[in-house]
Write a protein that binds this DNA or RNA. Sequence first.
DNA 1: AAAATGTTTATAAACATCTCG
DNA 2: GTCGAGATGTTTATAAACATT
Lengths: 488, 488
Amino acid sequence: MRGQQQAAISGGHSQDPLLQMDDSLTNIHWLGKMGANTLLDRQERSYNRIGRPQRKTHDSNRPPYSYMALIQFAINSSPARRMTLKEIYAWIEDRFPYFKTAKQGWKNSIRHNLSLHDIFIRETTKCESGRAQSYWTLCHEALERCLTIDQMERREAQMRCRPVPQITRSGTPPILPRPLGGYAVVPVVLPAPGSRDNNPTLGHRPAGVVRIQPKGQLPVSVTPSHLLRSGSVTTPRTIFPKPATQHGIKRPSDSDLPPRKRKSMISPTSSQHRPVPTFYRPSGASPLKETTNLTPTKERVKEEDVGMRSQLLWSPDSHLLFSPDKGFSELLNSLDLEISPLRSVLRTPVIGRNVATSTPRKVTPPKTSSRSPGLLSPIQDFSIPKTPDSGLHSSNSLTQHVSPIKDSFPPLLGRVQKSKTSPGQLGLGSLREFGLPGLTPLKEEYQGKEGDHEPVTQNLSFGKLLEELGLDTIAELDVGNISFSAIQ
Amino acid sequence: MRGQQQAAISGGHSQDPLLQMDDSLTNIHWLGKMGANTLLDRQERSYNRIGRPQRKTHDSNRPPYSYMALIQFAINSSPARRMTLKEIYAWIEDRFPYFKTAKQGWKNSIRHNLSLHDIFIRETTKCESGRAQSYWTLCHEALERCLTIDQMERREAQMRCRPVPQITRSGTPPILPRPLGGYAVVPVVLPAPGSRDNNPTLGHRPAGVVRIQPKGQLPVSVTPSHLLRSGSVTTPRTIFPKPATQHGIKRPSDSDLPPRKRKSMISPTSSQHRPVPTFYRPSGASPLKETTNLTPTKERVKEEDVGMRSQLLWSPDSHLLFSPDKGFSELLNSLDLEISPLRSVLRTPVIGRNVATSTPRKVTPPKTSSRSPGLLSPIQDFSIPKTPDSGLHSSNSLTQHVSPIKDSFPPLLGRVQKSKTSPGQLGLGSLREFGLPGLTPLKEEYQGKEGDHEPVTQNLSFGKLLEELGLDTIAELDVGNISFSAIQ
DNA sequence: AAAATGTTTATAAACATCTCG
DNA sequence: GTCGAGATGTTTATAAACATT
Ligand SMILES: [Mg+2]
Ligand SMILES: [Mg+2]
């Protein structure tokens, strides 16, 4: 850690050669280590449009982010969107002083995460200027998502200022208004490319500016500018927020524990279910399974779905789910699959759909839902399938499952584990403090009523989404810095 | 664990419904739990062609297999090639009594492995016969590989009977003869399909019988019978065994350990290198990197490759590597990619090849080799790329790396970690005892000599390969039970 | 030769989801 | 019929062994 790294960072300008040809914008010390103040100024000026001078984060406390997130923060903070291991170390230590004094082992974890997760890709430059150099970069989807520390901190600030509405009862916060239709975002301004057109790694992308479309209007495209320019994406997308569960209720840790050792549940609000994201095709074949669930009538409810009554109460009419976009399946087919458009879940009890196309969609048969369903904050839960045709394969009366989160973009907050080596309540504690575990859960009243067939969709207000991102709903926003994956 | 599992296994005949239509072969209790003796007889008779009555394995000692391997053993032991979690537990406990009394937590690890590794796929059957049931099965490549406990035990027995030639010096066993050309296997007999043609999961495949082709002849196809019948594979393959390193020499565990805590090396035979498998195209472009390594002359050695002298001594001429199959690239292009043909490594110091095709090949630039290279036993080291076009992407003077082992088929032995909860020397200890860590390493004499440019290829004798599998070289062999991936 | 870097497995645990008594 | 305990499934953290640079 010492000698070699020090040299590389402070003195040696670990400037990425990718950016050497440029001079004006990128010729700064974007990775600081000397005079933090001076550096801070430069950085704020160059890369922080928000202008909030928050360099050191979560001082001395362990940050509530997973290593996976931290590494993405680091890599995305660099103009070239790639970093050497040393630089990743240094960036994390710089932004999260906790790691400066952290028990050694965290670097091991960093390397472990880099190797383990496929979103982190190692590049080796040819040793044209001497020896080969290894850089860590992100897969295409992660580059697009462009997860940054700024996003998170904006979010945190938001949380501090206007915290989530108080929890009315234990574990059952009130429901928030949810509009019916899908949401659409349309690009309004496409600023001139930031003079770095030739960068193949999407590094230092210029931000596209979008404006929220009035509700009820139909899908228009939301497209990052660099993609628009290349003409790869021109089809509209719809936004379908995704349900989730409540957090913050202790469950028994693991069933393998001998019964005497198992922790007792604190709140017996058991049977929490979060339907796994479901990818469906509006014009797809009929469900393979016929067990009720689809018809929101009281009679059907009674039919033979043992213990599933409350599920149905939260199952919106299927036509509701598809109504906002009749041409959705055609759109799907015409999409550039490289983009991995994200359609998040609707709590649809459609089980085992038989997809008629050659590219199966991702599905997890929702025997779904439960008693107390909730809505996860979108930013915690938007995940991207790694490959277009990954997902559930249904044939021959069986169904194969692929976790949509697997090595893609797991929730960034709320799943960070408590560090064994840190005080204890830092991990999840700080999360709960910010109200982050399960931001907009459903009210219990809505759950209990039978035959509640009002058009309560699972669509989360997109305004709410933006609010949680720390952005205003109608205002223009810098799309370059938030996740496109969460918007498409 | 108790009641529920017990019921499902002993009484309930956790017979896979996939096999219900059949009656003669599969209608047995292939997963035992009651009267082990009776069961053993049936099993031996039905599924163990070898006829060696070795049911309980590694009695009370922790088996030297990774969880990943154990799970594959279990799943592949079932006719339907899929198992419920309970059945996996039971099978492992049955074959490896160690786990009957093992510290709880191993089941957690089993589940962890099932979820983590993509080769394990969860299937859910439609609740046609009542409720939905989850089965764990294997990805296509793993189904083909069909790793079984029998393979491993045959191998172990082999080791015990004719152990690897004594280690001459500490850590440097003698080299074994290695022929120059590639190897080819050709199918000789294709027995009639075992009446289970309709099984889409490749379950209970009939065995193809192959015979080893005399050396020096050119590639002929080796094809599992079920594939031949379906006509999906008709192109010849070549066999390129793969180099490896020696095992059993302690290295300092992790550099993150503070220097005082780091374990001291036992044998200073440091700098062991195992080149990562390299996928190359014989007709590819020239190497991107020019730094020596390719020219096996003494002058070049001295040039500026500090500390790399001995590498070159073990770098065979590149033309040697490509000579056996001139039409290899055409073959590659014509291959059914579903099969994921495996070409293992040659210790080729070709770095960063610029592949001209649209489907990049998997490459790890071998700055390669080292002082004491060795050959891993092929069965330990044949890995399969998960997707045809995964691998190295070379463009723009940089190279992206994809570990070929990643979640595919890592070495089964020799990398099993010592259990924290088990005595200690059980894990690696039993391996070394059998001479498994690095079966046919190179002799030290061959390493030391400078300018040793004799045509010492890294090709391992295919006969040796089979020998290590416990099979005779020229005899017909049951291909249905060994890994096709290791042969193709 | 030592240290940094990279890959993989083991273990524990948190948490979600599902099953079954 | 419901509920809740336990089984099953997913993911992250940590340590470590080992390979490679
Ligand atoms: Mg990686
Ligand atoms: Mg899996």
